[in-house]
């Protein structure tokens, strides 16, 4: 059982490893110009310089603060709207069509308008990120609540549960897995959008470091940025995944049975 698990994990490493070796060989023998694809060794050096000078940390801190603020605002309002639409018929009838209409617009399509309204400062970035985080959270919360099995509600009706008890013992636990999925999607959207926002408008942040590096022909810095973004996104998703297992362990085991 354990060995199988380990094997599964290792299998996921094969392709990255092969790609890494191919990349290293191609750049070592200059089959691809280093200006288009810097060799791994150069990337490690560049990363180390950026790390030890504090440049990377400072900019990551700025980006993460924006993600934090945008995610907090977007995900919590998404949770509220999703819950409201899931629980109360009138709210659903009034708001669901409007929500569905606006969620068809890719968040990036709002950029010109947001820039016009909010300028290029922090407000723009945070509003932009929260718009992105808001959508998956609303959808998944709403879905989760809507999909509480009818049989559960039937049982509840038989036992004549009160409102609060209904919410606490039936609706929340059975919607929670979906809400967690919403959180993960919402966080990963927020992380992608912070980079997008920083590519558009200036200020500190990892996206801005990449824009400037591109203008100064520092391909290695751009690529370090890409990798740092990937690792951070991966780590954040993993963290939420761990939280999920901790709080929803029962869900997993129940499904496995």
């Amino acid at each position: 059982m354990k060995i199988q698990l380990l094997k599964n994990k290792l299998t996921g490493l094969i392709i990255p490893l092969v790609l890494y070796v191919a990349w290293d060989l191609l750049s070592r023998y200059e089959l691809v110009p280093s200006t288009l694809m810097p060799p791994p060794k150069v990337l490690f050096e560049t990363w180390w310089v950026m790390q030890s000078s504090g440049e990377l940390l400072l900019n990551m801190k700025m980006s993460l603060l924006r993600v934090g603020a945008g995610f907090l605002v977007g995900a919590s309002s998404g949770f509220l709207l999703g819950t409201a639409m899931g629980l109360w018929k009138p709210v659903e009838q009034y708001l669901n069509p409007v929500f569905n209409f606006f969620r068809q617009v890719p968040v990036v399509a709002w950029i010109p308008f947001l820039l016009l309204w909010l300028g290029i400062d922090e407000w723009f970035k945070i509003v932009f990120i929260s718009c992105g985080a808001f959508i998956p959270m609303t959808l998944k919360t709403y879905d989760g609540i809507k999909n509480v099995p009818a049989s559960y509600l039937e049982v509840v009706r038989v036992f004549e549960y009160g409102w609060f008890r209904l919410l606490r013992t039936v609706i929340v636990p059975s919607a929670l897995p979906s809400i967690f999925t919403g959180l993960r999607l919402s966080l990963s959207e927020a992380w992608m959008l912070v980079i997008g926002a920083e590519l558009v408008a200036a200020g500190e942040g990892i996206g801005n470091v990449m824009v400037i590096a591109r203008r100064l022909f520092q391909t290695d810095v751009v690529l370090v940025g890409v990798i740092v973004i990937a690792i951070t996104g991966f780590a954040m998703d993993r963290l939420l995944g761990l939280l999920e297992t901790r709080f929803l362990g029962w869900h997993r085991t129940q499904n496995a049975q």
Binding site: I14, I15, V21, A22, W23, L26, V32, L36, M37
Partner: peptide, 18 residues
């Protein structure tokens, strides 16, 4: 399989861009 993946990698990275 590994050789195939390697070949794919070379094809992807090795194609001179531009």
């Amino acid at each position: 399989n590994i050789l195939l993946i390697l070949a794919l990698g070379v094809a992807v990275f090795g194609a001179t861009p531009g």
